[in-house]
């Protein structure tokens, strides 16, 4: 399908079967940015409708996970935390983790959940998983308030490194979107994907330094450990907010490269499969 538009003329649309890999057409997504906005807005609005606690849920989940981790890993298992109080050490990692896990889950199920839209209206399908990922940011922002409170409580002063924080948020989102693109496209064909996601996130949680510091991983293995992009994100968060020792640049470098690969590959795979969504979903 191609669109040509010349000034003063009606746009001309050619509908033809596509073959193989198709371009991503980011410009078209830009044209549909209002739809993207409305879908994010819908997800945010609807999320805590008809709950008693409402948006407090965005805080309750990471907060109680932190409490449980602090008791079992911090207190009982005496897990080292690089000299930082264990609760804030783990909460600081749980924040990007929750953002990632929620966004990944939502975006992976997004095409199936929005079946009604996909079979009845045209729009660039990339908008669907992208909007699910972006909706996760609102919860993240709410839960972030608690972190600020904890930093005041523990008297931790952020350094200039905090300016790098948006970058790490971006990497977390890009990871969620990258994996989400693959999984959402696969989920259209194979509903098995929906069942693997909880398992996958649980496994991934333990492969990420949330309950423990990266320092317990042997130094030689650390770049390899960076193959998990969330390890880089968590490291970055601690470095930017809590001023932990130096950031492991090789680890971060590997993480960012992996994210870039996942994302670009995911975009192309998603676009390639796009033509079958309405027929199969």
């Amino acid at each position: 399908m191609t669109i040509q538009q010349h000034a003063g003329e009606l746009p001309t649309l050619v509908i033809e079967p596509s073959k193989g890999w198709v371009p991503i057409r980011l410009r078209e997504i830009w044209e549909y940015r209002e739809l993207l906005y409305f879908l994010v807005w819908r997800d945010v609005k609807v999320r805590y409708k008809q709950t008693v606690l409402g948006a407090a849920w965005a805080i309750i989940q990471p907060f109680f996970t932190m409490v449980v981790f602090s008791i079992f890993f911090g207190r009982l298992a005496k897990m080292p935390s690089d000299g930082i109080p264990y609760p804030i050490f783990t909460y600081c990692a749980l924040l990007p983790w929750q953002l990632f896990a929620y966004s990944l889950n939502q975006s992976s199920n997004s095409l199936v959940a929005n079946q009604g839209l996909i079979t009845k209206v045209y729009f660039p399908r990339l908008i669907v998983p992208a909007s699910s990922v972006l909706a996760g940011l609102v919860d993240f922002a709410i839960a972030f308030v608690i972190l600020i409170g904890m930093m005041l409580f523990y008297g931790i002063r952020p350094t200039l490194a905090i300016l790098a924080l948006p970058l790490f948020v971006l990497v977390a989102i890009a990871t969620a979107l990258g994996v989400g693109l693959w999984l959402s496209a696969l989920n259209v064909q194979y509903r098995d994907v929906a069942y693997t996601i909880p398992f996958l996130t649980q496994f991934w949680l333990f492969a990420t330094p949330i309950a423990y510091p990266t320092s317990i991983v042997p130094a030689a293995l650390r770049p390899l450990y960076g193959l998990n992009p969330m390890a880089g994100v968590v490291e970055g968060f601690r470095w930017a907010l809590l001023g932990t020792a130096n950031l492991s640049w090789p680890l971060l470098g590997v993480s960012v490269s992996v994210v870039a690969l996942l994302l670009v590959g995911g975009l192309f795979y998603f676009r390639r499969m796009e033509k079958s969504y309405a027929d199969v979903v």
Binding site: S18, K49, Q50
Partner: peptide
């Protein structure tokens, strides 16, 4: 443009608005 043809083509001059169902995307909570 919801689904692709297997062969052949269509050329359309102008913006297309399609209405295959009323209330697509309505959310009951809103």
């Amino acid at each position: 443009r919801i689904t692709e043809p297997t062969t052949g083509r269509a050329v359309i001059h102008g913006r297309v608005g399609s209405l295959l169902e009323v209330g697509t995307g309505f959310n009951p909570e809103l």
